[in-house]
């Protein structure tokens, strides 16, 4: 089980400098989605004329389904400067991969709840750390894509693009670097030093 919580208004506003296409995922049965808060926030954006379209749906972590639904709204997505996804970390990563080079931002933090875990695709994983980093990393999760869960960049251990721990695993931070390069956001790498807050982490709070 997991809860998605809307990020603070200041954080959301700092992300959205131009026009935006919004995706709300009401999720699988495992997810508790902040419907009321999301609706209020989106109303304000709509009133300001900043929204090119809204897609409210479920199971955006299913890539085939997602593709069909996004292609139907391709014109609205192309018109937007960025896509804001209100979902768990898996949903954001699925959208970010499909829409590269379009900047994709996470509007929510994902927090763990005890109980049965929903079905998620194998390629993407969400650590439910409670302080989503996807906006700093081009929509690739550094907690789950890096074997050391580093949040401040690549360690010195990758060889030929592979992780020092597992030669079959691509270095997560090389993927992040390429994604940021493709989306024209390499300046994200100069963001302030990140220090994780393990008080919100699933591993510590369970």
């Amino acid at each position: 089980m997991l809860i998605t919580e809307l990020k603070s208004k200041e954080v959301l506003e700092s992300l959205l400098t131009g026009k935006v296409f919004i995706i709300n995922c009401h999720g699988c049965k495992e997810v508790s989605f902040p419907e009321k808060e999301a609706e209020e926030f989106e109303k304000e954006l709509l009133a300001a004329g900043k929204v090119t379209g809204i897609l409210t749906t479920d199971y955006i972590c299913n890539p085939e389904n997602l593709q069909v639904r996004l292609e139907r709204r391709r014109a609205m997505i192309d018109e937007a400067d960025a896509v804001l996804v209100l979902s768990c970390g898996v949903g954001v990563q699925t959208v970010a991969e499909y829409l590269t080079p379009k900047p994709v931002f996470a509007g929510c933090d994902t927090v763990r709840l005890p109980g049965f875990q929903g079905v998620t695709p194998q390629e993407f994983d969400c650590g439910q750390c409670g302080e989503c980093y996807l906006n700093y990393t081009g929509g690739i999760c550094p907690i789950t894509a890096c074997s050391k869960s580093l949040v401040n960049g690549q360690c010195g251990g990758s060889k030929n693009g592979k992780c020092e721990v597992d030669p079959n695993m691509e270095c997560g931070w090389e993927r992040i670097y390429r994604r940021l390069e493709a989306t024209g956001r390499l300046d994200m790498l100069k963001c302030p030093t990140q220090v994780r807050n393990f008080a919100t982490d699933a591993e510590v709070t369970k």
Partner: peptide, 20 residues
């Protein structure tokens, strides 16, 4: 820092973060 790394651009980005 690892100057002969095959991902030298990512290394330079990390180096800059250390400087900052």
């Amino acid at each position: 820092v690892s100057p002969c790394s095959d991902s030298v651009d990512a290394q330079l980005a990390k180096m800059e973060r250390k400087v900052l």
